[in-house]
Each structure stands twice: as C-alpha cells, then as structure tokens.
Amino acid sequence: MNMWGKSFAAIIGGCLLSVSIMLNLNQLLPANIDVRLLVGLLIAFPIWVAVMVWCYASDSTKQAWLRCLGLLTISAGVNAAMMVS
C-alpha cells in the first residue's frame, strides 16, 4: 500500500521543507526579530500541512518524494546562499 510511503514523504519531507522555508522567510521578512519568529511559528505548520496535501495527492510514493526533494533542493539552496552571504 503506497499510503505508508506517502505518509513518510508527507511527514519527513513536509517537516524539512517547512523548516527550510521558515528559515528563508525569517531572513527575508522586513520586520523585527520577535515579529519574524512569531510569523514563522504561526505559518510553519500550515506550510507543513500544505506539503502533506501535496504528497498525498501524488500518484505514487516516488512522486511524493520527488516533489518534496525538488522543492527542498531549491529552498535549501536559498538557505545556503543566505548563510554564505
């Protein structure tokens, strides 16, 4: 049953993606650090769940992982660029 595979992608991939996107937002938002942390906290979980929906809507486990990893690569790339700069 590919539901288990999708679930792993949804939970692990969703977690990593939401963390990565939050780190980017935290760097990019033009606000005080406490506001940025609060915004991050409030929208991190909706991002995670959005990724979960995306994974479960996939044809297969492989597609769910590919979607997560594709987006994660881009987001993590931005993370790395910001860290270096």
Binding site: W48, V49, Y56
Partner: peptide
Amino acid sequence: LIFFFALV
C-alpha cells in the same frame, strides 16, 4: 498534525 491535515 494529522488532525490539521484531516481538516484541510
């Protein structure tokens, strides 16, 4: 988390 997914 799964409950949140179930809602959405």
